[in-house]
Design a binder for these strands. Structure first.
Lengths: 156, 156
DNA sequence: TAAAAAGTGAAATGCACATTTCACGTACGG
DNA sequence: CCGTACGTGAAATGTGCATTTCACTTTTTA
């Protein structure tokens, strides 16, 4: 897996299509990428087996379910020992509102991406799931005023 | 569309499943959420029609295609007039490596999320697509050392 | 240059699956 | 308390589609 050696032009074209719409039949996909159904079917299975693509998924529009606000929270830790990191990671996993967590370079230790209902919601989660952690020293919050661009498409 | 009034428990259960795996047949989905195929099929179509969910998609693992590095770039603008914003937005759309762009509160004007091959790649895009813009005053880059959590699942 | 290995595509196969129908239960408004 | 309107689910329907086979082409390697 993670074997990039086998990514040729056809794979790239297939991925470009499938990242945007995986509802097409193998035959339709084949036509779009100028290949045959049999070949596309085999490539598709190979991409799955190699872990390049996951199962088909239905992404939800956050705004349509009342989670229209993006918030980013930078976190500084008191200490960075293994126990603290593990406990912090566990806390992050437990909160579904926190959709992404990165360990980062620079002044802060972590960057969190949250999908919240409103500011009150954010405050609640910040208090209850982040600041409560005794390994956390402090945080800084950034609100998104607007989504200028938002895509789940990885460039191939 | 964006009509949250109609989101009941069954819809929520369906969304929870479909966000993770939309490969199931309507019959299998029905079983998972304790409902009937006919009802699930109708709800599914309604969720599509309301714009709550998009078409099925195959998400790509960035690391598996040589885009294993997440970078975040904060951008400050010289001015925030409509022309600058539009031209900046256009530049962001044009670069597929920049997967997310938010207009943000705080010291900076924009937050960019990039999926890059390596630091050289990031530097190249920063120079060519961001700093070259004459509406851009300055930037600050944050590297992700590690993905602690990463999900495309919007909490329902 | 020849033989082996890997990939391709047209066509055949069968079955799983979306979609519809219909009768029924339930909630709501007057 | 009754009628309308809406959501439900079991069962029937046809067909669209994944999957395989096989002969062929291209690439590799010795």
């Amino acid at each position: 897996m993670s074997d990039k050696s086998s990514l040729d032009g056809l794979d790239a074209r297939m991925l470009a299509v499938l990242q945007k719409d995986a509802s097409l039949s193998v035959a339709d996909l084949a036509e779009r990428v100028a290949s045959s159904p049999a070949t596309c079917w085999r490539r598709l299975r190979a991409l799955e087996a190699d872990g390049v693509i996951g199962p088909p998924r239905r992404l939800v529009d956050p705004a349509a379910v009342g989670r229209g606000m993006d918030a980013f929270v930078q976190v500084r830790m008191k200490s960075q020992d293994a126990a603290s990191r593990a406990s912090f990671a566990r806390a992050m996993e437990a909160e579904s509102t926190i959709v992404e967590v990165y360990a980062i370079s620079g002044d802060w230790d972590y960057l969190l991406h949250l999908l919240v209902r409103d500011i009150a919601d954010l405050d609640d989660i910040l208090m209850r799931r982040v600041l409560e952690q005794d390994c956390v020293a402090g945080t800084s919050t950034i609100f998104a005023l607007r989504r200028v661009k938002h895509t789940a498409v990885v460039p191939v």
